[in-house]
């Protein structure tokens, strides 16, 4: 036979286990927005891919700029007309490469938006508040730069414009 002291201890431990389970369940409930498959695939996964793509684009742009600068440093200025032409081509190359800032800026904005949503859910858990809803991709036409392989190239755009022009 168990003494009363031991029974009290078992009861207290049981109650603590129940409280612990309830706390875990409440935590899981509050984490639900982040566990939503749509949020995980459309937002979290996309944010990771956007960030990777932005890093790759920055690297490619810097490579392009450095290559153009290297070509500029090798220009033979004894032939002024040819040098001017080469210099102009290098300037165009650098100018075009700088477009990366717009694209990576838009990609990093999407990463920031996703991180802000995750932070809002975690903060609500820490404060014991109800979790805010997280967003998933809607029907908006605003998607930002496409991830590699997801957008159309300029020649496809040209064909689309030509086709719709023909229908008019």
């Amino acid at each position: 036979m168990m003494g009363k002291g031991k029974l009290d201890l078992v009861e207290r431990l049981t109650n603590e286990c129940i409280d612990l389970c309830q706390t875990v369940l409440r935590g899981r409930k509050r984490l639900e927005p982040l566990l939503d498959p749509a949020f995980r695939t459309q937002k979290l996964l996309r944010a990771v891919n956007e960030q990777k793509t932005a890093v790759n684009e920055m690297e490619a742009a810097v490579d392009r700029i450095i290559a153009a600068v290297e070509r500029m440093s090798e220009i033979d200025f004894s032939d002024a007309a040819a040098a001017e032409q080469q210099l102009s081509a290098c300037c165009d190359e650098i100018m075009e490469a700088c477009c990366f800032q717009d694209l990576t800026g838009q990609r990093m904005s999407q990463v920031n938006d996703t991180l802000n949503e995750v932070e809002a859910v975690l903060a609500s858990i820490a404060d014991g508040r109800a979790s805010p809803q997280v967003s998933v991709a809607g029907e908006s036409l605003l998607n930002g730069p496409a991830l590699p392989g997801n957008g159309v190239e300029q020649d496809v755009v040209d064909r689309l414009l030509a086709t719709s022009e023909g229908r008019r």
Binding site: D102, L103, Q106, L141, L142, N143, G144, P145, A146, N150, G151, V152, E153, V156, V157, L160, L161, S164, E165
Partner: peptide, 14 residues
Amino acid sequence: TAESKVENVIAARQ
């Protein structure tokens, strides 16, 4: 623009 989905091009054209 960086918006390069087919639906964007069609919407802009329309």
